[in-house]
Measured scan of single mutants.
Amino acid sequence: MGFKLLSKLLVYLTASIMAIASPLAFSVDSSGEYPTVSEIPVGEVRLYQIADGVWSHIATQSFDGAVYPSNGLIVRDGDELLLIDTAWGAKNTAALLAEIEKQIGLPVTRAVSTHFHDDRVGGVDVLRAAGVATYASPSTRRLAEVEGNEIPTHSLEGLSSSGDAVRFGPVELFYPGAAHSTDNLIVYVPSASVLYGGCAIYELSRTSAGNVADADLAEWPTSIERIQQHYPEAQFVIPGHGLPGGLDLLKHTTNVVKAHTNRSVVE
C-alpha cells in the first residue's frame, strides 16, 4: 500500500471513529477524501466538511520552486461564519470567499490569524475590503508590521502568557507558548472536538522541520505538551499544512522538532 493511500485511509478511519463516538456532533463529509496538494491548482481553494458547521479550507501556493498546501478553518456561528487564517495570499483568499459563498452561503463576518507569517495573514486586506472584521493577538499584529505583512485590524486580548485561553464565538483560542513562531495560536472547536494546530503542528508525513527561522526550538516541545494537557479530548487535529489526523500529530511534531534540534547540535 502506497504512503499517500495509507495517509488518506488514516484520515478516513479517524473521521469514521469520530462519527461513531459522537453521532450528534459529527456529520463528516462523505463526498470524498481530504484534498491534497496535487489536486488543488494554485489560485483555487477546496472546502472539506469535518463536522456539522465545521470545515477546513485548503489552498496551495508556490514557494521556492515548489507547491505547498495550506489549511485553515471555518466555523459556523449562528447565521454567520468565523474564518481562521487566510488562504495564503490575496488571490487565494478572494477564491476562498467565493467558494464559501458557493458552498455554504453564509457571510464571513470575523477572521482570526493564528500567527504573523504570510500563509496566515496574506489576504487580510481582501477580507477587510469584503467587510470582514480581522483579528490577531497584539504580538501577531506587531510582528506582521515588522515583517511588512498585512496586519489584522483588531487585537485579541488575554493571550499574552503561555497557557492563556479565551473564548471567541464558537471557538476557544489558546496560546501554548512559542513553537513554530513566538505568537502562534491554537484554535479548538469544543462542539466538535476539532483542534486546529496551525503551523505549530505537523502532518504525519512530514519528517523535516522546514521553516524554523522564527521558531523557538527549545520551547516548542513544552508548548505541545500544554496543548495535549489542555485538549486531551480532541479527536480531529488539523495541521497548518497537509493531512489531518488525531492527537498523534502532536507527538510526531515533537519528535521531528527534537530530531532537528539534535542534528543542529551535532553539526
Rank of each mutant, 00 (worst) to 15 (best):
P69S: 15
K102Q: 10
R46I: 12
A111Y: 07
F168V: 05
L143H: 08
M18C: 14
L81R: 02
V28N: 11
S181P: 03
V256R: 01
L9S: 13
I50H: 09
D183C: 00
A95P: 02
H154K: 09
R226T: 07
I227T: 09
S205A: 10
V37A: 15
D248K: 09
V42W: 05
V171M: 03
T86A: 05
I227Y: 00
E39A: 13
K4V: 06
T86H: 00
L9Y: 13
N71I: 04
G246S: 12
A192T: 11
T36V: 13
I227F: 05
A111S: 14
Y12Q: 09
N92R: 01
G131M: 07
G123P: 05
S139C: 04
D29C: 07
A15I: 14
E33S: 09
Y231W: 04
T60D: 05
H180W: 01
N149Y: 11
N92T: 05
L81E: 00
A87D: 00
K258Y: 10
V126G: 04
V132H: 00
V54G: 03
A95Y: 15
T60E: 05
I238R: 02
S205C: 05
L195V: 04
V132S: 04
D64W: 15
G123A: 04
N211G: 03
A111R: 02
D248F: 11
T207G: 14
E33F: 09
E157A: 12
S155K: 12
A178V: 07
D118M: 09
A165K: 14
A25H: 15
D85L: 00
G169F: 07
S7F: 09
W220N: 00
L47P: 07
N184T: 02
T14Q: 08
I104D: 00
I84H: 00
F174D: 01
A94M: 14
V121M: 04
V121A: 04
S193I: 06
V28L: 08
L106D: 07
Y34C: 07
K91A: 15
D248Y: 09
L83G: 01
G158F: 07
T207I: 13
A218F: 11
P170N: 15
N262Y: 11
L156E: 03
F26L: 15
L195M: 06
T140M: 03
S137L: 15
T109E: 07
A87K: 00
D118K: 09
D164E: 10
S38W: 12
N211Y: 05
T93G: 00
T134E: 02
S62F: 05
I238S: 03
Y48V: 15
A209R: 10
Y231T: 02
G197T: 03
S38A: 11
Q235K: 09
A136T: 07
W55G: 02
G2I: 07
A218I: 12
G105E: 10
W55C: 03
P138T: 09
L217S: 03
P239G: 03
N71T: 05
L247N: 14
G245C: 05
P23T: 10
G123L: 05
E203A: 06
T36M: 12
P239R: 02
L185K: 00
I50K: 04
S181T: 15
A19L: 15
A133M: 14
V75F: 04
H180D: 01
R226H: 06
D125E: 13
V132K: 05
L156P: 05
H154V: 09
L156T: 04
Y68S: 04
A218S: 13
A179G: 11
R128S: 11
V75H: 05
L243P: 09
I40P: 15
A234Y: 03
V237R: 03
S137K: 08
P244H: 05
Q61Y: 07
D248E: 14
Y34L: 11
A130I: 08
R226M: 09
H260G: 13
G72W: 02
D85I: 00
L185N: 00
R142M: 12
L13R: 12
R142S: 13
T254Q: 11
L127Q: 01
G158Q: 09
W55Q: 03
S264I: 12
A215L: 03
S31I: 07
V189I: 10
H260K: 13
D77A: 07
H57R: 04
T109H: 12
T86D: 00
P138D: 09
R142K: 14
S70P: 05
Y188N: 05
T134I: 03
S223K: 01
I20C: 09
L173V: 12
E203G: 06
E44L: 09
L9V: 14
P152H: 04
I84T: 01
S161F: 12
S191K: 12
T36Y: 13
A15M: 10
L250A: 04
P138M: 08
S161R: 13
T134A: 04
D77T: 02
H180F: 00
D118N: 11
S160M: 12
T222Y: 12
Y175D: 02
D79Y: 09
L127V: 02
E99H: 15
V42S: 14
V189P: 01
R167Y: 10
R110N: 15
Y188Q: 01
G78I: 08
V126R: 06
V212R: 04
R206T: 15
A66H: 14
L24T: 14
R142W: 11
A94C: 03
D64C: 06
S161V: 12
L47C: 04
T254R: 12
A111P: 03
M1W: 06
E39I: 11
K4C: 09
E80D: 08
D216M: 06
A87E: 00
P35T: 08
V132M: 05
Y135E: 01
A213N: 13
P176Q: 02
T261P: 14
Y175K: 02
G246Y: 03
L97T: 04
I186R: 01
W55N: 04
L195C: 01
N71W: 04
I50F: 08
S181F: 00
G123R: 05
Y34S: 08
I151Y: 02
A130S: 11
A136D: 03
A95T: 10
A90I: 07
L73C: 03
Y196C: 04
H252Y: 06
P138R: 08
I201K: 04
R110Y: 15
V45M: 04
E80W: 04
I104V: 08
V11G: 07
E99Q: 13
T261Q: 12
E44G: 15
G43C: 04
G65C: 04
Y188V: 01
T109K: 14
V54I: 08
P23V: 11
G240S: 05
G78N: 10
Y68W: 03
R167N: 12
I224D: 02
G131Y: 04
M1G: 06
L96S: 00
L250S: 01
V28Y: 13
L249K: 02
R206K: 15
V11S: 11
T86C: 00
I58E: 06
V257W: 04
E267M: 11
G197M: 01
H252A: 03
V171T: 05
D52Y: 09
K102T: 11
A66W: 06
Q61I: 05
G169V: 05
P170V: 08
P107A: 11
T14R: 07
V166W: 06
S38Y: 12
G158S: 08
A209S: 09
L143Y: 10
P170H: 02
P138Y: 08
Y231P: 01
T182L: 14
F63C: 04
K4P: 06
N262D: 11
K251N: 11
E157Q: 13
P232F: 00
K251Q: 15
S139Y: 10
S181Y: 05
S38V: 08
Y135C: 05
A234K: 04
G197L: 01
D79E: 11
V256T: 05
T182M: 14
E225N: 09
P138G: 09
E99P: 05
V126D: 04
I224V: 12
C199Y: 06
E101F: 08
R120M: 01
L6A: 14
S223P: 07
T222Q: 14
A19D: 15
T93M: 00
D29S: 09
P176N: 01
G123N: 06
E225R: 13
S161G: 13
V189Q: 01
G245M: 02
H154F: 14
L204D: 12
L159Q: 00
A192V: 13
L185H: 02
R141Q: 13
S113W: 02
W220Y: 08
L5Y: 15
A19Q: 15
L10F: 15
K102N: 13
I186A: 09
E101P: 07
S38P: 10
A136Q: 03
A178H: 10
G246F: 05
H57I: 02
T140K: 06
T182C: 05
E39G: 14
G198V: 05
G78R: 09
R120V: 02
N92F: 00
V257F: 06
E39C: 07
E225Y: 07
T86R: 00
A94H: 11
G122K: 08
Q61A: 13
T60Q: 14
